[in-house]
């Protein structure tokens, strides 16, 4: 369906696509094609409110994905962002709801928790040389248990929009004349611009990519590889903290024990957006576009009347197609 037309495009006009940003461009076409397809298939999908909902549910995935792009670029991964997000939100929310802390302080703690776990992940991977998959799988379990432990196993309802302290929900969505305006999207765009700049124009970004491409050569250039390697995970943790706030702001109650699997949406988005699993290649803008592929699938498939099982099957298939496009493209580039 949507993808057929895209792969055709990939075959006919390669240089044009490369000029437009390579895989990013292909994936952008996929996003647009999916949007048109779902809109044509479902009147419910065409509505403004649905677009707002898609955006609402994309913020936390987008934020996680922006963050996890950095460990991925170092040829690592962070699996703890999903359960971490819930953990940070539970702890921040616990202080707000049960200890009467101001919401702003709770948010600060939430982000801080993300940074702390980012440092822990970074130290385990970069300083103690644990494989990233293993280290972050461990912190994934730790965050899951830790969050539930702090709140005693019960859900945390951050203040509702109308309750005192509910102002923080309007960070992501404001009402003007009874219409919801998804301002969160602007924040996401702003953060993508900032992190693109960090990736392409700062030492942090340069060394992140260099570590992913050839860690040893980077070390032998006299770069403080350990520091920058840790920092990639700290950035990831920081964004997991921001994602926790986005999640708390959009959804009513944060349930302990949830969160496992969120990281797959984020990592999947990054990969679809052209971030290489072997590190060194990728972009933040690509990641964002990739995230929208995932989010459109998650939201769009229920709207065209597919039941849960079909949704998962089709999501898996679309991801394979997206990744295959990248592989085929790369093979062609190297002349094979």
């Amino acid at each position: 369906m949507a993808n057929k037309s895209v792969s055709k495009t990939a075959g006919t006009n390669r240089s044009f696509i490369d000029r437009m940003g390579g895989q990013k461009f292909i994936v952008l076409i996929i996003v647009i094609a999916m949007f048109i397809f779902f809109s044509a298939m479902s009147p419910g999908f065409r509505k403004y409110t649905t677009i707002v909902s898609i955006l609402d549910y994309s913020y936390y995935i987008a934020l996680m994905a922006i963050g996890v792009t950095f460990p991925l670029l170092t040829a690592g991964v962070d699996l703890s962002i999903g359960t971490g997000l819930i953990c940070y939100s539970l702890i921040g929310g616990y202080l707000v709801v049960h200890q009467d802390w101001p919401v702003a302080a709770g948010m600060l703690v939430t982000v801080l928790m993300g940074v702390i776990f980012g440092v822990i992940n970074g130290c385990l991977v970069a300083l103690m040389d644990l494989p990233a998959f293993l280290a972050t799988l461990c912190t994934c379990m730790i965050t899951r248990g830790f969050g539930a432990f702090v709140v005693g196993g019960y859900g945390i309802p951050w203040p509702t929009a109308t309750a005192p302290g509910g102002w923080f929900r309007s960070i992501f969505k404001i009402q003007v004349n009874g219409q919801n305006i998804p301002v969160g999207f602007l924040w996401i765009i702003l953060l993508v611009i900032i992190m693109s700049f960090v990736l392409n124009h700062t030492k942090m970004g340069r060394y992140t990519l260099a570590i992913g491409s050839n860690k040893e050569a980077t070390r032998l250039s006299g770069v403080n590889v350990k520091f920058y390697h840790v920092m990639a995970y700290v950035i990831c943790g920081f964004f997991a903290g921001l994602a926790a706030i986005a999640y708390s702001a959009i959804f009513a109650t944060v349930q302990p024990g949830s969160g496992a699997g969120f990281e797959m949406d984020a990592i999947g988005g990054a990969i679809v957006g052209g971030v290489s699993m072997t590190g060194g290649v990728g972009s933040v803008t690509g990641t964002l576009i990739g995230v929208f592929v995932i989010c459109l699938l998650k939201t769009g498939l229920p709207f065209i009347g597919l039941t849960a099982n079909w949704q998962q099957i089709i999501t898996g298939l679309v991801l394979i197609v997206a990744v295959m496009i990248d592989i085929v493209k790369r093979k062609r580039e190297s002349g094979k």
């Binding site: 479902s42 009147p43 419910g44 509505k47 409110t49 649905t50 909902s53 549910y57 959009i250 959804f251 009513a252 109650t253 349930q255 949830s258 699997g261 998650k298 939201t299 229920p302 709207f303 039941t307 849960a308 099982n309 949704q311 998962q312």
Partner: peptide, 22 residues
Amino acid sequence: VAVPAQTTVELSATEASNIMNK
């Protein structure tokens, strides 16, 4: 009757939106 693909609020909300949009 709708059942979300995973037991998350967001997917429950998506399924609910789909019905509530009709």
